[in-house]
Simulated scan of single mutants.
Amino acid sequence: MPDEAPSPPLAGAAAHFRALESLYDSAPINRLWNSSLEIVESGFARIRFELTEAHYHAAGAAHGTSYFKMLDDAGFYAANSLVSDRFLLTTAFNLLFTSPLKAGPITAEGRWISGHRRVFVAESRLLDADGEEAARGTGTFMKSKIPLSSLDGYEFPA
């Protein structure tokens, strides 16, 4: 059987999305969660993660830091999927808790809402294992002076 031709290198938006996913994987904070980022299309990001009892507060449900972290990350990556030269910074984030989360698989979805130049707005939501919304958030993200290309984790696929 002949060898298959190598796949052509990714270019454009797809390469940027994979490099952002690599950046997410490289962040030390993400070692605290069993999570993975998928940038599905421009302006949309999905994070799948597993909550455990290690993420609980004293009353036996997930602490709000887990909600914020995943909602912020989903919104951030949805917005940064539209920006290929600079790292974005969260400048504000509003959060609504709608139900407590327990251990199990959770999905965070982020979607870009508005902004094209310097400030971007994205909304995100957390879905429990049954697909029920447990939280919702809206964030604003601003271009920083940090070039994405200067970050060790921002790597294009081979």
Rank of each mutant, 00 (worst) to 15 (best):
I47N: 01
E50F: 10
E38T: 11
I29E: 03
I47R: 00
L32F: 14
G43P: 05
L32K: 10
S42D: 09
R18W: 04
V40L: 15
E41T: 06
F17Q: 00
L20T: 03
R31G: 13
F49W: 13
G43F: 09
R18H: 11
V40W: 07
N30Q: 12
R46S: 08
F17Y: 12
R31E: 11
R48H: 09
A19R: 09
I39G: 01
A45C: 04
I29Y: 07
P28C: 12
E21P: 07
I29N: 09
I47Y: 02
S35M: 02
S36N: 09
A45W: 07
A45R: 01
L37M: 08
S36E: 15
F49Q: 07
V40G: 00
A45N: 01
L37C: 05
E38I: 01
S35H: 02
F44N: 06
S22V: 04
P28E: 06
E41N: 03
L23S: 06
S42M: 06
N30D: 09
S22Y: 06
F49R: 01
S35I: 07
E41M: 05
S42I: 01
G43L: 05
G43D: 07
D25L: 14
I39E: 01
S26H: 09
A27C: 10
E21H: 08
I47W: 04
F44M: 13
P28K: 08
V40D: 11
L51I: 03
R48S: 12
S22Q: 14
S35Q: 08
